[in-house]
């Protein structure tokens, strides 16, 4: 049984169809990459999966359960964790408190029960030096790390990463990939939207291409990247 399945999911904002008839499945434990030009509807697709937006048509199921109408909060309880493309930290809380609130509420546990786990995630995501600093003062890399750390704090089965490597230097990117790989190695299913292709392909086993809200291809990364239509749409290469 796939951990996540979308069937004919559509979403419009007024006249603009941002998600059109999207169907795909993600087997448990897999890492799926999503690529597509800006405005292809990638982040909207994430918002539909997490429940931050509700779809107009189609169905979404998680672990075999229909979650199409389930609100974001309950999808988090079910095991869907996410990062935001533009980091959305709780600015007045410290890094550690950002994780605490996510762990306590996402896992419905007491502070005592999650303190150690949060501290370990802070360590794993290399945020220990700023653990007690307010999130408002973090650098871009630290904010991206915090996005991932906070999602991990909810102990997700499915982790959605939205352009987590965008805007980072190569060295920063390498460190982030290491962290993502180790999360994936623990068996967490990952869906990762990314423009930084080398980062993406070093982790994911499958690629999905989105254009104008439609899935135009899904398959092994090599196979997808060699397709002429993908190269034209995505890389703007005339072949």
């Amino acid at each position: 049984m796939p951990i996540l399945a979308l069937q004919n999911v559509s979403k419009s904002f007024g006249q603009l169809k941002v998600t059109q008839d999207v169907s795909f499945e993600v087997p448990e434990g897999q890492a799926l990459g999503i690529i597509g030009p800006n405005g292809a509807g990638k982040s909207t697709l994430f918002n539909l999966i997490t429940g931050n937006l509700m779809s107009d048509a189609g169905s979404i199921s998680f672990e075999g359960r229909d979650v199409t109408r389930v609100p974001a909060m309950q999808r988090c309880f079910a095991g869907i964790g996410r990062s935001f493309q533009i980091p959305q930290p709780f600015a007045n809380l410290t890094v550690f408190e950002n994780l605490l609130v996510a762990a306590m509420h996402g896992r419905n546990a007491s502070q005592k029960a999650v303190e150690q786990a949060c501290a370990e995630i802070v360590e794993q995501t290399e945020l220990m030096s700023v653990a007690n600093n307010a999130a408002s003062g973090l650098s871009l890399l630290q904010r991206k790390r915090l996005e991932m750390a906070r999602a991990l704090a909810t102990d997700p089965k499915l982790l959605l990463l939205d352009e987590i490597a965008g805007g980072l230097t190569d060295a920063e990117c390498v460190a982030l990939i290491d962290t993502i790989k180790s999360v994936h190695a623990r068996g967490v299913t990952i869906i990762w939207i990314e423009h930084v292709l080398h980062a993406l392909t070093s982790v994911v086993e499958r690629l999905l291409v989105l254009d104008f809200g439609k899935v135009i291809g899904i398959g092994a990364p090599d196979e997808i990247m060699n397709r002429q239509d993908v190269r034209e749409i995505y890389l703007g290469i005339d072949v």
């Binding site: 997490t50 909060m73 408190e97 609130v101 996510a102």
Partner: peptide
Amino acid sequence: LALSAVRDNPEAAKSVGVD
């Protein structure tokens, strides 16, 4: 703590299981 999270960012708060 949840209250501070909601004040700072309601969308993100929902995504980490805060009602």
